[in-house]
Simulated assay, not measured.
Amino acid sequence: MEESSVTQRQEESAKIQYGCEHYRRRCKIRAPCCNQIFPCRHCHNEAMSSLSNPKDRHDLVRHEVQHVICSLCDTEQQVARVCSNCGVTMGEYFCEFCKFYDDDTTKKQFHCDECGICRVGGHENFFHCQKCGSCYSVLLRDNHLCVENSMKNHCPICYEYLFDSVKGTAILKCGHTMHMDCSAEMARQNQYRCPICSKSVFDMSRTWEILDAEIEATAMPEEYRYEVKILCNDCNNTSEVFFHIFGHKCCHCNSYNTRRIVPQ
């Protein structure tokens, strides 16, 4: 009983001492791709992506990890939750498939068989969308525009791969995806178009009303009173409207998210 209490105290102490900026854990991993030891796959990827020779840069495939090193006794061993030498639990959360360890269980980690990786946030709060190919919040069930394998792309703002990113992801009205932080930064920069398809991703009705008023109050000189052909990015319809320096309004959906079609 006394030995068990000592081991428990060691584990509690080790939760604070060991790990990295990404995860608290009591083991390191040996990367099979380069045979080097790192605290986690993110540490490996950051180190490898900064190598001077582009040919040497590479990412670690999490499922290929076979060996871990206990942080308490330095014993290298096959992937397992408990150290084969000192008996310490190397991670309160452990996924044998992903070779993933983490002591911070407040993240509510869970493994999605269909994604093939571990997610955070609690299994009960997510569902797997078969068409989009990823887990989404249950709030989006039957409430989002599906784009096939939309998460298996890079964020159009920061270009980080979205599928296994640790950052939160937003689904835009058009169905394309990006990081929540990147979407918020777009809004701060007054960028309202999807970087991929150019459709409006925010409610622009108030902005369009302001443009209506400004255009009505600002008459164009006689030499600029001619019609132009436009294509609407929001509804994909074409219109012929009078030219105005402030913008051109779609005759079909009333959006100003349009572009002028220049005759060839």
Rank of each mutant, 00 (worst) to 15 (best):
His144Thr: 08
His144Lys: 13
His144Ala: 06
Leu145Met: 10
Leu145Cys: 02
Leu145Lys: 06
Cys146Ile: 10
Cys146Gly: 01
Glu148Lys: 12
Glu148Gly: 04
Glu148Thr: 11
Asn149Tyr: 15
Asn149Gly: 07
Asn149Glu: 14
Ser150Glu: 13
Ser150Gln: 15
Ser150Thr: 14
Met151Ala: 11
Met151Tyr: 15
Met151Thr: 03
Met151Asn: 09
Met151His: 11
Met151Ser: 09
Met151Phe: 15
Met151Glu: 04
Asn153Ile: 06
Asn153Val: 09
His154Lys: 10
His154Cys: 10
Cys155Met: 05
Cys155Phe: 05
Cys155Asn: 05
Pro156Lys: 07
Pro156His: 09
Pro156Ala: 06
Pro156Ser: 05
Ile157Thr: 04
Ile157Glu: 10
Ile157Ser: 08
Cys158Thr: 02
Cys158Val: 03
Cys158Ile: 04
Tyr159Leu: 14
Glu160Phe: 06
Glu160Asn: 07
Glu160Val: 09
Tyr161Phe: 15
Tyr161Trp: 15
Tyr161Gly: 00
Tyr161Pro: 04
Leu162Phe: 12
Leu162Cys: 10
Leu162Lys: 03
Phe163Glu: 05
Phe163Ala: 00
Asp164Phe: 14
Asp164Gly: 07
Asp164Ile: 06
Ser165Tyr: 05
Val166Thr: 09
Val166Pro: 11
Val166Ala: 08
Lys167Ala: 06
Lys167Val: 01
Lys167Trp: 14
Gly168Gln: 14
Gly168Trp: 12
Gly168Pro: 08
Gly168Asn: 14
Thr169Glu: 09
Ala170Gly: 00
Ala170His: 12
Ile171Ala: 02
Ile171Trp: 03
Ile171Thr: 05
Ile171Phe: 12
Ile171Gln: 05
Leu172Cys: 08
Leu172Ala: 05
Lys173Phe: 13
Lys173Ile: 03
Cys174Gly: 03
Cys174Val: 11
Cys174Pro: 11
Cys174Gln: 10
Gly175Gln: 09
Gly175Asp: 11
Gly175His: 11
Gly175Leu: 13
Gly175Ile: 12
Gly175Met: 12
His176Pro: 05
His176Cys: 06
His176Val: 09
Thr177Pro: 02
Thr177Arg: 02
Thr177Val: 10
Thr177Asp: 02
Met178Glu: 03
Met178Ser: 01
Met178Ala: 01
Met178Arg: 00
His179Ile: 03
His179Lys: 02
Met180Pro: 00
Met180Asn: 01
Met180Leu: 12
Asp181Thr: 02
Asp181Tyr: 06
Asp181Leu: 13
Asp181Arg: 06
Cys182Arg: 02
Cys182Trp: 02
Cys182Phe: 03
Cys182Lys: 00
Cys182Tyr: 01
Ser183Pro: 00
Ala184Thr: 03
Ala184His: 07
Glu185Ser: 08
Glu185Thr: 07
Glu185Asn: 09
Met186Ser: 01
Ala187Gly: 04
Ala187Asp: 11
Ala187Thr: 10
Ala187Leu: 14
Arg188Pro: 00
